[in-house]
Design a protein around this nucleic acid. Structure first.
Lengths: 123, 123
DNA sequence: AAAATATTTAAGTATTTGCTTAAATACGTA
DNA sequence: TACGTATTTAAGCAAATACTTAAATATTTT
């Protein structure tokens, strides 16, 4: 991929484009981390898992499989992704693993939870 | 997929599980819409496009291709996804299409933009 | 130590995603 | 009308995703 500017519009402000590139460059780490978090939550099953953990405080894979009507391995694999992203942690009690959201949950996550609303407003 | 409860733990509170299911059910539309939005922003290229549009107000596909050092068709296909999700709109000026974020942008999107920060804090 | 339960991991597979290249469409200008 | 530029669309393909089933681990109970 060549690094040259291809836009030939008279209006194309090269200074603006270069400024955009340099800003993106300085935001690189943050953009990558943010898109990673969003890709985790950007799956309906995982979003439900996160939403449920926020609501119930902690749940085990078996509970989640029941609630979401999915197989335990399917749930477990989603959990692994969420855990690998550093969003949740497990607490063991016997054979059962209880997962819960980490305390340092991000503003984005909080804003996501706030925006999820029931379809009918209870009067 | 059977609808029966498989979790046999003594602690498994069936009332809690049923309550979770019913809450999820009432949030169904919202969860689907939210995960859709997050899946759009959960791709690094698209997140950059959104971030740039927020920063520069409006940009054309050609500018974005230059800034992101990607092919124009690749950018165009990302733009289509973002547009189909109702997040951006185009304004035509001659042959050039200027894309910009819709006015009614969600809290989640605003929170995403706020959380994207440069790596070095300017003192 | 063997059996039962909770969970994870691995292997296989169908679907989705994100690019590439080539062709089509839209608009302005010679 | 023909040509050039901006953009989109289509077709093709490699890689990633999300499930399935079967096997492996971990823990408790008998």
């Amino acid at each position: 991929m060549k690094l040259e500017i291809t836009c030939t519009r008279a209006e194309a402000n090269h200074k603006q484009l270069l400024n955009c590139m340099s800003t993106l460059n300085s935001m690189d780490v943050s953009l990558e981390k943010t898109s990673k978090l969003l890709s985790i939550a950007g799956n309906e099953v995982r979003l439900k898992i996160l939403f449920l953990l926020n609501m119930e405080n902690e749940l085990c894979p078996c509970d989640l499989a029941d609630i979401l009507k999915m197989s335990v391995p399917a749930i477990s694999q989603h959990i692994r992704k969420i855990k690998d992203a550093g969003i949740i942690t497990a607490r063991r009690e016997g054979q059962t693993l209880y997962y819960s959201l980490n305390e340092d949950k991000t503003d984005i996550l909080n804003s996501i939870f706030k925006s999820i609303k029931p379809k009918i407003k209870i009067a």
